[in-house]
Computed example of a mutant assay.
Amino acid sequence: MSTPPLRVELSAEEDLTLQELRVASDVPQRTKDRAEALRLSHRGWTPAQIAEYLGWQVATTRRAIHRWQREGLYGLWDSPRPGRPSPCTPAVMSALEQHLLTEEGTVNSRQRRDMSYGLVVGSLTSATYIRFMNWQATRAQRLFQRTGIATVIVQDNASIHTSKAVQERMPIWQPQGLDFFQLPPYCSQM
């Protein structure tokens, strides 16, 4: 006898709460992703489908569902982690964001309107980076077809950016309208 598939049943109120969490600006991204995973499960998605959509492992999806079942809404947030606190406090991240948007010489007002950026604090694997860049390439291709404007990715010399796996993907991404600008090994502007 097989076990029923792992699935979340949400009330209308719970679904609305999770939807609001998903778009809230002051909620950590991991919490937002867990909220989205629960809403997808409620709509009949399997853990494998959710994992593929979010770029997770299936086990991560299952853990998020089990945490919801055990702890409810509180299970969506991370517990404090052991070890040294991150040097990137919310105040530091806010200051960096403000710097990127307002610092003279960084971008002009037209570029600011058209610029998006991402910053990762912590570890990132080549596989995760490639998935992210595949997504960026799809977006860049749509933008290029619609407007003729290429998307430029500015990268530092982190090992993930110069890895063989990433370098092999660049010729695939470039025809999709994704161009790369590699910063020099030492960049005093950073």
Score class of each variant (00 low, 15 high):
residue 83 G to N: 02
residue 159 S to R: 14
residue 109 S to A: 11
residue 93 M to E: 15
residue 157 N to C: 07
residue 98 Q to N: 13
residue 162 T to P: 00
residue 171 P to C: 06
residue 77 W to P: 00
residue 114 D to E: 12
residue 163 S to A: 15
residue 101 L to V: 08
residue 146 R to S: 14
residue 106 T to D: 13
residue 153 I to G: 01
residue 100 L to R: 09
residue 148 G to W: 02
residue 70 R to V: 11
residue 102 T to A: 11
residue 97 E to H: 08
residue 159 S to T: 13
residue 178 L to P: 01
residue 93 M to H: 07
residue 142 R to L: 09
residue 111 Q to G: 13
residue 70 R to M: 13
residue 78 D to H: 05
residue 154 V to T: 09
residue 161 H to M: 00
residue 153 I to W: 05
residue 136 Q to C: 12
residue 133 M to D: 05
residue 95 A to E: 13
residue 95 A to W: 07
residue 85 P to I: 06
residue 170 M to H: 10
residue 168 E to S: 08
residue 87 P to W: 08
residue 98 Q to E: 15
residue 90 P to Y: 11
residue 106 T to N: 12
residue 85 P to S: 09
residue 88 C to R: 08
residue 93 M to D: 14
residue 145 Q to K: 11
residue 166 V to G: 03
residue 69 Q to E: 15
residue 86 S to F: 00
residue 107 V to G: 07
residue 168 E to M: 07
residue 119 L to E: 02
residue 173 W to H: 01
residue 179 D to E: 09
residue 81 R to E: 05
residue 179 D to Q: 07
residue 86 S to G: 01
residue 113 R to A: 13
residue 121 V to K: 00
residue 181 F to S: 04
residue 87 P to C: 04
residue 99 H to K: 08
residue 103 E to D: 09
residue 71 E to R: 09
residue 93 M to I: 15
residue 177 G to P: 01
residue 70 R to L: 14
residue 129 Y to F: 15
residue 140 A to Y: 01
residue 90 P to V: 12
residue 124 L to A: 00
residue 172 I to C: 02
residue 118 G to P: 00
residue 120 V to F: 01
residue 73 L to K: 05
residue 116 S to P: 03
residue 89 T to F: 08
residue 99 H to M: 11
residue 85 P to C: 02
residue 162 T to Q: 12
residue 165 A to L: 13
residue 104 E to S: 09
residue 134 N to A: 08
residue 76 L to F: 07
residue 110 R to T: 14
residue 95 A to F: 05
residue 121 V to S: 00
residue 146 R to F: 03
residue 126 S to N: 10
residue 168 E to A: 12
residue 106 T to V: 15
residue 166 V to C: 04
residue 137 A to P: 03
residue 151 T to V: 14
residue 173 W to T: 01
residue 72 G to A: 03
residue 178 L to D: 00
residue 130 I to L: 14
residue 100 L to F: 10
residue 155 Q to Y: 01
residue 166 V to I: 14
residue 81 R to Y: 02
residue 150 A to S: 11
residue 103 E to F: 04
residue 100 L to E: 13
residue 151 T to H: 04
residue 148 G to F: 04
residue 102 T to C: 10
residue 98 Q to T: 15
residue 146 R to Y: 05
residue 117 Y to T: 07
residue 89 T to R: 09
residue 96 L to F: 13
residue 80 P to L: 11
residue 85 P to V: 08
residue 128 T to D: 07
residue 157 N to E: 05
residue 155 Q to T: 13
residue 70 R to T: 15
residue 134 N to T: 10
residue 143 L to A: 10
residue 87 P to G: 09
residue 175 P to A: 05
residue 150 A to H: 10
residue 87 P to R: 10
